[in-house]
Amino acid sequence: MAVGWAGDGAVQEQIDAGIEDEIKRARSRLSRGKSLTHCRECGEPIPPARQKAVPGVQLCIDCQTELEEGQGSFTGFNRRGSKDSQLK
């Protein structure tokens, strides 16, 4: 089936590329190394259960929540807005 300039499997390639990008982004945000016993921001103790559950944790729950709320959501790239996909 002709789909304009897009080659066979182009849509699946775009989907796969988007998934791979999101996996890389998520992995880059994971903590690494030894967990801290006290929050690096406020100095409050980090509970042992949190240290065990999140290896490499550096922030208490309150500071982590504040950090994540400040980051907002990541929308990524609009791969569907490419010229090839608009030619269908």
Rank of each mutant, 00 (worst) to 15 (best):
M1N: 08
M1W: 07
A2R: 11
V3P: 00
G4E: 03
G4Q: 01
W5M: 07
A6Y: 00
A6G: 14
A6K: 13
A6V: 08
A6P: 00
D8A: 12
G9K: 11
G9P: 04
G9E: 06
G9R: 07
V11R: 12
V11N: 03
Q12N: 08
Q12L: 14
E13R: 15
Q14S: 14
Q14N: 04
I15Y: 08
I15H: 06
D16E: 13
G18P: 01
G18V: 02
I19L: 14
I19D: 09
I19N: 11
I19C: 06
E20C: 00
E20W: 01
E20L: 12
E20K: 12
D21Q: 14
D21M: 08
E22S: 06
E22A: 13
I23D: 11
I23F: 13
I23Q: 13
I23T: 04
I23S: 04
I23R: 15
R25E: 03
R25I: 04
A26N: 08
L30T: 09
R32D: 07
R32W: 06
G33K: 09
G33D: 00
G33S: 02
G33E: 01
K34Q: 14
K34Y: 00
L36E: 15
T37L: 07
T37W: 02
H38S: 15
C39E: 06
C39L: 08
R40S: 14
R40Q: 15
R40H: 10
R40F: 06
E41H: 09
C42F: 04
C42N: 02
G43K: 05
E44H: 06
E44R: 15
E44M: 11
P45W: 01
I46G: 02
I46Q: 02
P47I: 04
P47V: 02
P47G: 04
P47T: 01
A49F: 05
R50I: 09
Q51I: 10
Q51K: 09
Q51N: 04
A53L: 13
A53C: 05
A53P: 03
V54T: 05
V54D: 01
V54C: 03
P55F: 07
P55R: 09
P55S: 05
G56W: 10
G56A: 12
Q58M: 10
Q58S: 11
Q58E: 15
L59T: 06
L59Q: 13
C60F: 05
C60N: 04
C60Q: 03
C60I: 07
I61K: 12
I61P: 00
I61Q: 14
D62R: 15
D62F: 03
D62G: 00
D62H: 06
C63Y: 03
C63G: 01
Q64T: 10
T65Q: 12
T65C: 03
T65M: 11
T65A: 14
E66P: 00
L67Y: 11
L67Q: 13
E69F: 06
Q71L: 15
Q71I: 09
G72A: 09
G72S: 11
G72E: 10
F74G: 00
F74C: 00
T75F: 12
T75I: 09
G76T: 02
F77K: 13
N78F: 03
N78G: 05
R79H: 07
R79P: 01
R79K: 08
R79C: 01
R79V: 07
R80K: 10
R80P: 00
R80H: 09
G81Y: 02
G81Q: 03
S82M: 09
K83E: 12
D84N: 07
S85D: 02
Q86N: 08
L87W: 06
K88S: 05
K88Y: 12
K88A: 11
K88F: 10
